[in-house]
Write a protein that binds this DNA or RNA. Structure first.
Length: 474
DNA sequence: TTTTGAGTTGTTCGA
DNA sequence: GTCGAACAACTCAAA
């Protein structure tokens, strides 16, 4: 056996299944598995609070799978990786690629430095179905519209998603090094009752990711197309945080869905994986996406930051019940149903006229699945400033959306219990309820539940006018 | 180069 | 209650 271990640097791939970097490291003989919490390089995009909590548990799960041999560090990866190579006389380092601009640049630099020291550094695709540079238009430029991107990805030769790799039979793990930290040392989980609340909603780690996938395949995928729209039904896969941390790979999910067969539901589900790919694709080709409007005419949009409104939106106290239900789900569970994400985002941007970046920042901190690519791309989509965004006149009405997608009010009543006695007819617009109805339901508007921050119709019109002005002056 | 058809998830209005 | 059209104009992708 070689005396020099292969270093497998775990990042957003906290799993043993379908892990090309791990398999490559095993080929060297002994494996030194490493994790680094690199907040220093992350700048604005260090892991948010909810995601840190997830990471804490996900690392514990991985540590267990690796029999406690995961070597954990905190600091700048460009210092730590070369140091580990020196300390262990390792000449080979392997990792699966990340695509956040700060990580991509950092990793390029590390690879260069290692190669200068005659250390073999190799990166693999462990997180995407298609590499962003693999799918290009005939003229060599990147796609900006989802449908042709996805079509091209699925039909191009050599673009069929790879078959997932097996779990290695045996991982010849190196003896534990002495200078590593424990997961607890990283202090990812604050001592706060909020954590326990979040933890109740999730089963974290690779093994659980497999279970969540199986449950989705068995119970939900056959009516996904319809079921995913109703937040009370929980018809979505809820795989996003598992995918974000790489507890499961998109290739595993894609393959498992393909095994079920072919129908609309399966195709729609796969296309959601396609949207994840598209977000990463855009982030790779447009690294300013988290900061800048992809449509630059939105640079002139008259956002108006009302701090009080923003605060009430974050608290789920806007006075618009379906919006508040979503925002409270986010706070209480670290997650929000996809349908409701669009509605709360649309409300912030198109009714309160607050810049999408404020919303994206709050999501970043609160979501266990906070993902730079998906978060930035989706906010730009809702705001209308994305390359392939919703047309500007498409403004969600949080009242009709509630009536349509939470018809029995189960979701809304659960998260806004102060309205639970209101009849469904008025649940989504209590300001329209007769005084006697409010009294019977024990609701005092402006007291037990807030009056709406804005009038839905008026604020909608204001947004349309603003958008028209921005469009016509180009 | 020019042309043509299309573009995740909606709302409202009027027949 | 249901249905189709209008909502604006633009940019993208491919022929």
């Amino acid at each position: 056996m070689s005396t020099s271990p292969g270093i497998c640097w775990f990042r957003q791939d906290l799993r043993l299944h379908d892990n090309p970097a791990l398999l490559a490291a095993i080929d060297c003989g002994e494996v030194l598995p490493v994790f680094i919490l690199d907040d220093d390089n992350a700048g604005n995009w260090k892991c948010g609070s909810a995601a840190r909590l997830w990471l804490h548990h996900s690392l514990n799960a991985l540590q267990k799978s690796l029999e406690g041999r995961l070597s954990i560090h905190r600091g700048r990866a460009e210092d730590i990786i070369p140091r580990l190579c020196r300390d262990h006389q390792s000449t080979r380092v392997f990792w699966n690629r990340c695509y956040e601009p700060w990580r991509f640049e950092r990793d390029k630099e590390i690879k260069k430095r290692l190669q200068e020291q005659s250390i073999d550094a190799q990166s693999f695709n462990g997180s995407l179905l298609w590499e962003p540079w693999q799918i290009m238009k005939k003229d060599g430029t990147p796609y900006k519209v989802f449908t042709p991107f996805y079509k091209s990805a699925r039909t191009n030769a050599n673009a069929t998603p790879a078959v997932p790799l097996p779990v290695p039979d045996n991982i010849p793990l190196m003896r534990k090094d002495s200078d590593g930290l424990t997961v607890d040392d990283l202090k990812l989980r604050p001592d706060h009752p909020w954590c326990e609340k979040i933890e109740r909603h999730w089963r974290i780690g690779e093994e659980n990711a497999q279970i969540v996938l199986e449950e989705f395949i068995e119970a939900k995928i056959d009516h996904y197309n319809h079921g995913r729209d109703f937040p009370a039904e929980k018809g979505t896969s809820r795989l996003s945080p598992h995918l974000h941390f790489g507890e499961i790979s998109p290739r595993q999910v894609w393959e498992r869905a393909s095994e079920v067969g072919f129908d609309d539901n399966i195709e729609v589900f796969k296309s959601e994986l396609g949207w994840r790919e598209f977000s990463y694709y855009l982030l790779y080709h447009f690294p300013r996406m988290p900061y800048d409007n992809l449509k630059s005419k939105f640079d002139r949009f008259p956002w108006w930051l009302n701090e009080q409104w923003l605060k009430r939106w974050k608290q789920g106290m806007t006075g618009v019940p379906f919006v508040d239900a979503g925002m409270r789900e986010l706070w209480q569970t670290g997650h929000m149903h996809n349908r409701v994400r669009m509605i709360v985002a649309s409300f912030l941007v198109k009714n309160l006229l607050i810049d999408w970046r404020h919303g994206a920042a709050w999501f970043w901190d609160c979501l266990v699945d906070a993902d730079l690519a998906s978060n930035s791309a989706s906010w730009q989509w809702v705001a209308g400033c994305g390359t392939d965004a919703a047309p500007f006149f498409r403004i969600f009405n949080p009242v009709t959306q509630g009536q349509k997608f939470d018809p029995d009010g189960i979701y809304t009543r659960h998260f806004v219990p102060e309205l639970k006695e209101l009849p469904s007819k008025y649940l989504f617009s209590p300001w329209n309820a007769p005084q006697t109805t409010l009294e019977q339901a024990g609701v005092r508007l402006g007291d037990s539940y807030p009056c709406p921050l804005v009038d839905i119709q008026q604020s909608r019109q204001k947004a349309l006018d603003a958008l028209k002005k921005v469009s016509s002056s180009s």
